[in-house]
């Protein structure tokens, strides 16, 4: 096996891309591009943190990397490095340089001051039935007011909520977030994924439709009636 110069893994709120600190820069950025292109549907929309170790990356190289990701619908969000050259370049490009407080969102901050305003997290609202052949990608949540028909597909980094029948393919927490949830008024997806877990609806006749939620527990997707 060849040694991996590029490592991609899902982290809580995006992707962590680790690039070998020693290998030729051009070679590893090319490899990164190829890897993403091979799975573009999965990566599209992702927020990326790049770890370059102690490699000094000048500003022009970093902006090339930023452009490479943007062309593929991804955002360079933060750069992790021990090199001051790299950190300066990142700051010059307005990128974050630490993973601390990377993410607004699900968790409340340590609550030094009480703020009555609920921040919420961004998402996409689709106000009609998604028919076969349609896809929705989002770096946030997806809400469908309508059905998701067989042959339609939703890929969201966050949660997926369907106010209707879910029969297509859905992938929540697509960047690796195992806390993502999927809920629908009638949950019979062709295929349902949360982060790296996957399940299909049991075959056979549908029972009486009822609202259900899907979450990951003990490393598998559990679907249960919505408690209200």
């Amino acid at each position: 096996m060849q040694e991996q110069h590029v490592n991609i893994k899902g982290i809580k709120d995006g992707l962590l891309v680790s690039l070998s600190p020693t290998e030729e820069w051009l070679l590893i950025t090319n490899e990164l591009g190829t890897r993403i292109d091979g799975q573009s549907a999965f990566f599209s929309g992702a927020r990326v943190t790049v770890d370059v170790g102690n490699r000094p990356v000048p500003k022009h190289e970093l902006s090339t990397l930023k452009a490479l990701l943007e062309r593929r619908g991804m955002t360079l969000w933060a750069v992790l490095s021990d090199s001051s050259t790299t950190l300066d370049a990142a700051q010059a490009l307005d990128l974050r340089t630490s993973t601390a407080n990377l993410i607004p969102g699900r968790e409340d901050t340590d609550g030094s001051e009480f703020n009555p305003e609920e921040g919420g997290t961004p998402g996409v609202m689709v106000r009609r039935t998604l028919r076969s052949g349609r896809t929705v990608h989002s770096t946030g949540h997806v809400i469908v007011y309508g059905d998701v028909n067989p042959g339609a597909e939703i890929i969201a980094a966050g949660d997926v909520i369907v106010w209707g029948k879910l029969r297509g393919n859905v992938h929540a927490g697509a960047n690796g977030d195992e806390s993502a949830v999927v809920c629908a008024l009638d949950m019979t997806p062709n295929q349902l994924r949360i982060a790296g877990h996957i399940t299909v609806s049991p075959p056979g006749k549908r029972r009486q439709p009822r609202p259900e939620t899907a979450t990951v527990r003990d490393n598998q997707i559990i679907v249960e009636a919505w408690q209200y």
């Binding site: 009609r128 998604l130 028919r131 076969s132 052949g133 349609r134 028909n149 067989p150 042959g151």
Partner: peptide, 16 residues
């Protein structure tokens, strides 16, 4: 037939 219905659905989406 499932495949024909799937294509019909797609066409309806395009018509809309």
């Amino acid at each position: 037939e499932v495949s024909a219905v799937r294509d019909a659905d797609r066409i309806i989406g395009l018509l809309e």
